[in-house]
Design a protein around this nucleic acid. Sequence first.
DNA 1: GCATCATTGTGAGGTCCCTCACCTTATGGG
DNA 2: CCCATAAGGTGAGGGACCTCACAATGATGC
Lengths: 175, 175
Amino acid sequence: MSSTRTTRTTAAAASADVTPLQVGEAYLGLIHRLRRVADDQLSSCGLSMPRIKLLQFLANAGATRQNVIATCFDLAPRSVTDMVDSLERDGLAVRRDDPTDRRAKLVELTPAGHESAASSGALRDQIFERIFGALDAPARATLLDLITILDRATVAVDGLAPCGPSELESSRSTS
Amino acid sequence: MSSTRTTRTTAAAASADVTPLQVGEAYLGLIHRLRRVADDQLSSCGLSMPRIKLLQFLANAGATRQNVIATCFDLAPRSVTDMVDSLERDGLAVRRDDPTDRRAKLVELTPAGHESAASSGALRDQIFERIFGALDAPARATLLDLITILDRATVAVDGLAPCGPSELESSRSTS
DNA sequence: GCATCATTGTGAGGTCCCTCACCTTATGGG
DNA sequence: CCCATAAGGTGAGGGACCTCACAATGATGC
């Protein structure tokens, strides 16, 4: 059950040295395409990945405070405001005052929202399957492994000195 | 200082079945963090990843037409306009008419641009190393492998029917 | 020569994120 | 009790992308 990492398949493995920069670029590049493809598939339904994710979350969390959403999604509170605005505009969710704290607002799906959540959830699964189904199960496990490691690494890097100017002359001419 | 990757105790390796959805979410989630960390590290220098990438490109490609940039970066032409505007505003690049085609414009770095490209390139390398250095060389190779496969998959998916809402059941692909 | 179509870049406007400043409430110390 | 500080949400504004519509130019057909 360990050592999932044995799937060493193609050309990449042959070249001995893959630099961090190369992998990084590749990772970012794939993101780019991923977004494009996903959005493309969703465009006809008037939905988007972030919306679906929020819909999904609200569907099985019930009424939730915006700051909780921000925390769970690792977003700035301001961004949640916009997303909820958008959902509310489309009649998929409503804001309600939190009785226990008059500063806070609870967000909750409308019936239309629940409906949308159900169908869009299926759609999302489908899209992910189309893309990540290209990897077999062991490969997916390996990838998840790798991502998990990187995830921890980013947490570690976060809150570090921003690459002190000791090593490079800070440029940035105009304001 | 690659922290030990000995800990393979993630749920991923243990649970036999990692769904496409799970990996997908993880992949997207990491992107989110990656962007945040990178921007954070760069903010003090007034730069950003897309800017650095373009700077780098122009530094060793010389004068380039905007549509070429769009193609190489897989961006909408409109986005290139904005990026070049931004660089021009900061005095890092200039637009020049292409003598061979009066519709086209050539983008070229100024001396300040070349300077900025040099230092920012080093900075970018540093950041990628901090993050992706958490993976050892074989792991990086594996990751690149996986990404390459997915990359090809997205190309395949692109240009598919946008999964009409009525055909939610008709996904005859894998499951 | 001229009508037609393709290509290059841009204006306008939209999405999804961010930060910063601000108002409103909650909470805790004197 | 009152005031300082913290916490929740939002207005304003910015950055990096997108699409759609359009002017200018190039290439091509007749």
